[in-house]
């Protein structure tokens, strides 16, 4: 179980190490040692939960995507806020979204993005990971939601994971 000085997921280890440095007040000898220990231990312990490594082939596209999501979160919040304050009843729709992505990691990112952006919360993934159930707060039709998500989020993710 414990391979000697083996880092099965270098990026996870690096993230853990850096986060630990930020959480402890100032970088010191103790925090570096503890950070290294955690960066070694946690990937080993959680290895069973990562069936296959995420294949992020174009990581440099990630910042642009995150920026777009951040802007959309602000727009989404304003839209939802206006709907809540206007007092009219919403028109909710359950949408079955056909997924084109295949990697579990990519689907997770897409689902999280959907939950944070325009009036939609992802509710469930079918067992064969082909369909995503989305609840839209205020939408005209099912097709509208599907087209918007496909254009805005799934295309860039498809290009990142391939």
């Amino acid at each position: 179980m414990f391979d000697r000085l083996n880092f099965p997921q270098p990026w996870l280890s690096l993230t853990l190490f850096l986060v630990w440095q930020f959480l402890s007040n100032g970088v010191s000898g103790a925090s570096v040692v503890m950070g290294l220990l955690l960066a070694w231990l946690i990937p080993q312990l959680t290895q069973g939960f990562w069936p296959d490594r995420p294949a992020l082939t174009r990581p440099w596209r990630l910042p642009g995507y995150l920026l777009r999501v951040l802007v959309d979160i602000v727009i989404a919040s304003v839209t939802v806020a206006r709907l809540i304050l206007s007092g009219r009843p919403p028109k909710p729709v359950f949408v079955s979204y056909p997924l084109e992505l295949e990697q579990p990691m990519a689907i997770t990112i897409l689902a999280s993005t959907i939950s944070l952006t325009p009036g939609t919360v992802s509710a469930d993934v079918s067992d064969d990971q082909k369909i995503l159930l989305i609840h839209a707060l205020d939408a005209g039709s099912e097709q509208e939601v599907i087209d918007a998500i496909k254009q805005r989020y799934e295309k860039p993710l498809m290009e990142m994971f391939r």
Binding site: I73, V80, P90, P92, L116, L137
Partner: peptide, 18 residues
Amino acid sequence: RLPDFFTRLHGPTKATTL
């Protein structure tokens, strides 16, 4: 004040987080 659980889910996930 939103009418059902699934619509209520939208308030906290977006507005409150932001």
